[in-house]
Amino acid sequence: MGQQQDIYFVPSKSYWPFVAAIVMFVTVFGAAHWLNAEPGEAGFGESLLGIGVLGILFMFFGWFRSVIRESLAGSYNSQVDRSFRMGMMWFIFSEVMFFGAFFGALFYARMYAVPWLGGEGHGVLTHQFLWSDYSAAWGASGGGGPGHVGGHFETVVPWGLPLLNTLILLSSSVTVTIAHHALKAGHRGKVLAFLGFTVLLGATFLYCQAHEYIEAYRELNLTLQSGVYGSTFFMLTGFHGMHVTLGTIMLAVIWLRVLRGHFNKEHHFGFEAVAWYWHFVDVVWLGLFMFVYIL
């Protein structure tokens, strides 16, 4: 299918961007209202938040439906394809930087803030005047920081569920790659099998993660409030879990699209974009496993 390079494609008008702006506003306005609601006056913020989230789902459905239709109609030439690829790559780069902020917070808290509170380096006076009985440590023995915020807790043992989760995510990266090769070879049945397998592995990961959270809260007293250890642990793994959730949904959508025959050997950028995203989520997990669980 030769594409003429000298003809540009400019998409037709669409109301979806405007709808997207509105539903995003409704969502965050509702969320802000909910966060500030006094006990007893609940309701308005949550409802707005719920409407907003449903609106966002509706918007994604509608916007992607129109894009998929245009794609199937053959409107997108190789130049548009390159724009999409660049868009996805730079979006993933922005996600990397987002996680970078939280990893940065983890390293800073662990390497600087906590030792300084224990009297190291130029933190000697802070230590002397504020918490002279605090001995700096990370993890369970560090407690919830010098103020024992959140009380005593135990940390998650990395060689149980987290190790299993690492193996699950690594295997899912393999299965999605096998599916990709099968797609390029034109074996649809194999694509469906291995992509389906990837979705199941993603879902299993999420189940294990939920199990780990429940155990942390019930058995270990490790909560979001457990000082800076709890904050970094749950924010990093939590945002990662949200990304796995999103990735699993995207993989499931791609599975359905493969089932409907939307992709062929040459044109399957939707598949590739989701695969890139899945690998990114995988790499972030390796960083988490190393720096949050093991070290």
Binding site: Y108, A113, W116, G145, P146, G150, Y229, F234
Partner: peptide
């Protein structure tokens, strides 16, 4: 992190919890 420190009890910027406003 500001949001979770304010509304969800995290300690990123709270020295009592081992965090640091300078962070």
């Amino acid at each position: 992190m500001l949001l979770t420190d304010k509304y969800f009890g995290t300690s990123f910027f709270n020295a009592a919890g081992g965090g640091d406003p300078v962070l």
